[in-house]
Amino acid sequence: MELTPETIKKALQPVVDPEIGISVVDLGLIRDIQITPEGVVTVRMTLTSPFCPEGPAIVQEVEQTVRFLPGVKEAAVELVWNPPWDPRTEASDEVKAMLGIWD
């Protein structure tokens, strides 16, 4: 498996926000993935709210999932809050429909 942002997102698909029960990838919480040639991966992500009670657990699960991928030497998660998460622009179309968000 080649280590790319797409393969990492695929590996993160099973990680869900436990309050909503939807994948962090489908929610659009994964903002950016940087991979160095040395296998250091940094995932920039946000949460649905800065006060998300499950935030630490979600971040830990994302980091552990990435850390155990073949070719990853180090993994880190960086939380970003700007811009705030907006499901109307960041969530997948399927999630928008599930949340009752229509364009």
Score class of each variant (00 low, 15 high):
residue 1 M to E: 10
residue 3 L to W: 11
residue 4 T to D: 05
residue 6 E to D: 13
residue 7 T to Q: 04
residue 8 I to N: 05
residue 8 I to K: 00
residue 8 I to E: 07
residue 10 K to V: 09
residue 10 K to S: 08
residue 12 L to P: 05
residue 14 P to N: 03
residue 14 P to D: 05
residue 15 V to R: 10
residue 15 V to H: 08
residue 17 D to H: 07
residue 17 D to K: 02
residue 20 I to H: 03
residue 21 G to C: 01
residue 22 I to Q: 04
residue 24 V to Q: 03
residue 25 V to K: 00
residue 26 D to E: 15
residue 26 D to M: 12
residue 27 L to P: 00
residue 28 G to V: 09
residue 29 L to Q: 01
residue 30 I to G: 00
residue 30 I to K: 00
residue 31 R to I: 04
residue 31 R to N: 03
residue 31 R to L: 10
residue 34 Q to K: 15
residue 37 P to K: 08
residue 37 P to V: 01
residue 38 E to W: 06
residue 39 G to W: 09
residue 40 V to F: 13
residue 40 V to P: 02
residue 40 V to W: 13
residue 41 V to P: 00
residue 41 V to Q: 06
residue 41 V to L: 09
residue 42 T to S: 05
residue 43 V to Q: 05
residue 45 M to G: 01
residue 46 T to G: 02
residue 46 T to H: 06
residue 48 T to G: 02
residue 48 T to E: 01
residue 50 P to N: 07
residue 50 P to H: 03
residue 51 F to G: 11
residue 52 C to D: 01
residue 53 P to T: 07
residue 54 E to L: 09
residue 54 E to C: 15
residue 54 E to V: 15
residue 55 G to Y: 14
residue 56 P to V: 10
residue 57 A to C: 06
residue 57 A to N: 12
residue 57 A to Y: 13
residue 59 V to I: 15
residue 59 V to W: 09
residue 60 Q to K: 15
residue 60 Q to A: 15
residue 61 E to T: 12
residue 61 E to H: 11
residue 62 V to L: 04
residue 63 E to S: 07
residue 63 E to A: 13
residue 63 E to K: 15
residue 64 Q to A: 13
residue 67 R to D: 10
residue 67 R to S: 11
residue 68 F to A: 08
residue 69 L to M: 14
residue 69 L to F: 10
residue 70 P to E: 05
residue 71 G to A: 12
residue 71 G to Q: 10
residue 72 V to T: 06
residue 75 A to D: 01
residue 75 A to K: 03
residue 76 A to R: 15
residue 76 A to Y: 12
residue 76 A to D: 06
residue 77 V to N: 04
residue 77 V to M: 05
residue 78 E to T: 04
residue 78 E to R: 14
residue 81 W to C: 02
residue 84 P to C: 05
residue 85 W to Y: 00
residue 87 P to Y: 13
residue 87 P to M: 05
residue 89 T to Q: 09
residue 89 T to F: 14
residue 90 E to I: 08
residue 90 E to Q: 14
residue 91 A to P: 10
residue 93 D to H: 13
residue 93 D to K: 13
residue 97 A to Y: 15
residue 97 A to F: 15
residue 99 L to Q: 09
residue 99 L to Y: 14
residue 100 G to K: 08
residue 102 W to R: 12
residue 103 D to I: 12
